[in-house]
Design a protein around this nucleic acid. Structure first.
Lengths: 240, 240
DNA sequence: CAGTGGTCTAGACCACTTT
DNA sequence: AAGTGGTCTAGACCACTGC
């Protein structure tokens, strides 16, 4: 995490965020950045590719790298982010209430598991509020094979912080699906859903760096409060 | 688009899709791939990074590159994809009916435009059906500054195909938001939405390679038919 | 024409995993 | 110790942009 290109990425990103490189202006050329950071061009280019993927810049051949207007992405639910991280990037008064924390088997259905194998896990149900309004119910199944003890404190604060900083787990990637569904009666009450209204459900399976399946998550959002913001690059697809 | 690393990426991706490199197995090592394709290691590595981002493989230091189970991603709405491309990856009977195609100004509200400037555009409204069921209404505002004539044929077939292949436009990136909203009466009728039911709205702004804003899109989905599938990698964020 | 980004090379050293 | 991926270098040639 302390590679040169990562530091260069951070430095340029900060300069963009703080307006030192304003939107619509050009970054210094790659050769100038080489001099600036005292590195080779490929290293600078690795940093720029990361900024490109994050939507910070656009590279134009023969011209340079243009700074994009990053202020649009005020509420990114893209990528894997924890509730706590989301709140820190915003400035909102939020609370987390742990409703349940107990051992349970992962339900084979619902997550599209083909196996009959019963997966032992810790079941965590949490209610999230923002500005005193209930917004999200988060349901986690954390596989006991990977983590067998979760203190209530960790669930109240941030599971990801506990897993990464305390346990040193290397959370790497996840698959997610977003659908709109009818809430259960319990969900309707907890989130104060009006009659006939649906909820947005984000189901995800999270994996560690070594491809170990690690947790199942169901995140149930009030539909009227739900917003998903994304930056996407076009992939020209070829062949098969 | 015919760079060595892109060809290597395609070749490996195809081998993964066709099971020549099965899920959970290791790819040949980077040095072996160098010999196989007759390139330097950095070139092979560029190809592998692309596969990593697409969720085809996972790299593990000291061990190798593992093939992930890519069969999960059967319905990716992630990235920028056209309806036609989506259908081709699936095998579904789909139709597109052009309801409206006429010059219009882009509505300043709705897309969060701060300007008072009135943007001239071509307005296109299309109804998408899958297996004879109405599923999506696509509304496009294509800026006249970039494209000033759109034949009805192009709208019936694929706008992206027309823009990219016929006009040679370089569509590069987009910002998207997903929300759940009450449909208009017209939308309710077209999509046959039951009373009290909402729709999913995907709004996007699409840009060309040179950062020119190019089109606004509103994609209105029947909530009960909506599904968004995504692969996401965790970003460890630092500093500010 | 000079400057820009895009691709590619051949090598180097490191950290990590396995035997 | 040998093999793996992770980082980095110093150079090369190309295609595109602008003047």
């Amino acid at each position: 995490m302390e590679s040169k290109y990562d530091l260069i990425k951070q430095d340029i990103a900060n300069k963009i965020i703080h307006g030192i490189y304003p939107a619509s202006s050009y970054l210094p050329s790659e050769n100038e950045l080489c001099d600036l950071y005292g590195t080779s061009r490929e290293t600078v280019r690795k940093a720029l590719v990361l900024l490109l993927e994050l939507g910070y810049i656009q590279k134009i051949k023969g011209k340079g790298s243009i700074v994009l207007d990053v202020s649009r992405f005020v509420f990114p639910v893209s990528g894997i982010k924890s509730f706590k991280e989301l709140n820190q990037s915003q400035n909102m008064h939020s609370t987390t209430k742990v409703l349940t924390l107990e051992p349970r088997l992962v339900p084979t259905k619902g997550f599209g598991l083909d196996q009959n194998s019963e997966l032992e896990a810790t079941y965590i149900e949490r209610l999230r509020t923002i500005n005193d309004e209930p917004i999200i119910i988060d349901i986690d199944y954390v596989l006991s094979k990977v983590v067998n003890d979760i203190p209530k404190m960790a669930a109240e604060n941030s599971l990801y912080e506990y897993f990464e900083d305390q346990l040193g787990l290397d959370i790497s990637y996840a698959t997610k699906t977003i659908t709109v569904e009818e809430p259960t009666e319990r969900q309707r009450q907890l989130l104060k859903i009006p009659p006939h209204k649906d909820v947005v459900v984000i189901r995800s399976m999270t994996y560690l760096n070594d491809t170990t399946l690690f947790q199942f998550t169901e995140s149930i959002h009030r539909a009227d409060k739900f917003s998903f913001v994304d930056f996407a690059r076009r992939q020209k697809l070829k062949g098969h």
